[in-house]
Design a protein around this nucleic acid. Structure first.
Lengths: 330, 330
DNA sequence: CTGAAAGCGCTTACAG
DNA sequence: CTGAAAGCGCTTACAG
């Protein structure tokens, strides 16, 4: 009832607990007969090794902590999936903590994970370098994904600025003259970078920017705002696909044709993007790969003993051309 | 460098490790002065308690294992979010393992988690009761979410059959005469239940059923198939919203009007559902709540010592009425 | 190939 | 309020 221990298995198999341990762990310095007897005993007793005891003596938890922000939906899921697949391939467990709405919560979560993981994968727009430094044991490798801080043993980030520039250039090439932007929330680092890219590439005196919050609804409101005020833009760069979907709906309700009247470029290439009407031109970041490569970077750091500095990896978003931006008014 | 231990903290604070332990854990049988000194020493040394050692002696890991199938997207993310929020409120950690494409993998993952968690939250269409029984220590409480097995210390499931019935009844009330169904993959338990509900409620000799796989693309193909063969149905129950989105696109490309020509009902109420054109009538299951309540059920089982049997909780999907089904040909 | 023993870092009666 | 000591379940030199 209370869970069999290695001692129980050893007794049942008539061997020492040292031999039992070796058999369970598949070491080769065990007689075949002993191995068989131990494994059978273990199965009979439903023996499950106590991970804590093991990690106490090996000083390895084989667990990676994953700290996520309070982002919902596809993006979140894809990152985890990438991390998860890569972790399983290496026999690593994942201790996940998500939904941190503010820096304090995130820091508390990191603290709580500290003693149970070999390394940390942090994806949080909140956590600052000095928070990390204050809270973690010196020896815990940290890799950040798409976060503000670039410290730790490595980082993977997305060139959001470059993505914004690419979007604008593309719209200009399509012949758009009056560009507008629906941005993400201003406290979000990635959102700010995309906006900065937009502003730096746009060739207009004072381009219209509507601040959304990455939800479909705010995209809807953004388009409504454009429709209500002044001349309608003929090209909109929307900071994520979710908002672009809301934007499409508002435009379609207003009888505005996409891309004939207004060309649209989103960001993320969420699965739904190719199924909107018209399909959405967008900037794709391999989200799954972001997670996968983040974990790989962390594992590399662990293998090296943890203290090497790695350069930040920067992933460039790729323009995925679909009908929502085939403008060509010219 | 190698991480400070409680012994280091005790030495630094000039107290016994017993007192240090008490101070760190906030017990009240410690002199205020000692408490302060210990906490300061801990901060100075960046002390982080070793979770394994702690769980070894308390026989509590304060960690819940979460086993997920290889479902992507919203659903997955929302479940985790619900579980995560509820877990954090109780100071519990989450050990997550996802993307299990087959029973063996799922069972292996459960085994691996066994010795590191206080209980298991299983969401998998694959795992059977006898798998559980064979693999887990007798004492590990298990709660299943939306899974085939209803054993363990409790289960939360969705009345998928009832949802299918509700969808059909609604379509019939709208005046639809020729119903069709786009189903999920046949190896999926939930998909089968929805189809069974559809078939049992539909009043037609041999209703058309297209087997999809829960992706937008298969919904698209399903609609194409209906368009290509025989008389077009005037009402379609699509087994999830993702496929319904693909379905909408195919219909719109073919110039078929929704809901005038064909009424549509989806399943899930994913965020995008209210932003399709027309907005999608669908069956909503509070996915977040499914996760939250699953964790709560598990915690209750833990508190009771783990061995109580609980009844299965069944959540009834709720019809969310939107324009895609306002048919009224009559 | 095998076993006795030390020790990983912690908590918790127990005695004071 | 405090400390010395036992022990949680495991792995790993070490000696045989």
């Amino acid at each position: 009832m209370a869970g069999a221990t290695l001692k129980d298995v050893a007794r049942e198999a008539n061997v020492s607990i040292a031999s039992a341990s070796r058999a369970i762990n598949g070491l080769d310095n065990v007689a075949e007969a002993v191995k068989v007897r131990v494994l059978e005993a273990a199965a009979r007793l439903r023996y499950v090794p106590h991970g804590g005891a093991r990690s106490l003596v090996t000083s390895r938890t084989n667990t990676i902590g994953v700290l996520l922000p309070d982002i919902y939906g596809e993006f979140f899921a894809e990152i985890i999936r990438g991390v998860d697949v890569a972790a399983r391939a290496r026999g690593l467990h994942l201790l996940v903590s998500g939904s941190h709405g503010n820096p304090d919560e995130a820091v508390r979560a990191m603290r709580a994970m500290g003693g149970r993981v070999d390394g940390l994968l942090v994806m949080s727009p909140f956590v600052e370098s000095h928070d990390l430094a204050a809270i973690l044991p010196l020896s815990l490798p940290v890799v950040t994904i798409a976060s503000r801080i670039g410290s730790g043993q490595g980082s993977i980030s997305v060139d959001n600025f470059g993505g914004g520039v690419t979007a604008v250039k593309h719209l200009l090439e399509q012949g758009c003259k009056r560009l507008a932007h629906i941005s993400g929330p201003s406290h979000n680092f990635e959102a700010e970078e995309r906006k900065r890219g937009f502003l730096s590439a746009v060739r207009q005196p004072s381009p219209v920017v509507f601040e959304g919050d990455f939800t479909e609804e705010s995209g809807y409101r953004g388009a409504k705002a454009f429709l209500a005020s002044g001349p309608l833009p003929d090209g909109i760069f929307v900071a994520n696909d979710m908002m672009a979907v809301g934007c499409l709906l508002a435009l379609s309700e207003a009888g505005v044709k996409v891309p004939q009247d207004v060309a649209l470029v989103g960001f993320d290439d969420i699965p739904i993007a190719r199924f909107t009407s018209p399909p959405l031109t967008t900037l794709r970041v391999g989200i799954f790969d972001l997670g996968r490569r983040g974990l790989e970077l962390l594992v590399a750091a662990l293998d090296e003993g943890g203290m090497q500095e790695h350069e930040g990896l920067v992933v460039t978003p790729e323009l995925v051309l679909r009908d929502s931006s085939r403008h060509k008014t010219g």
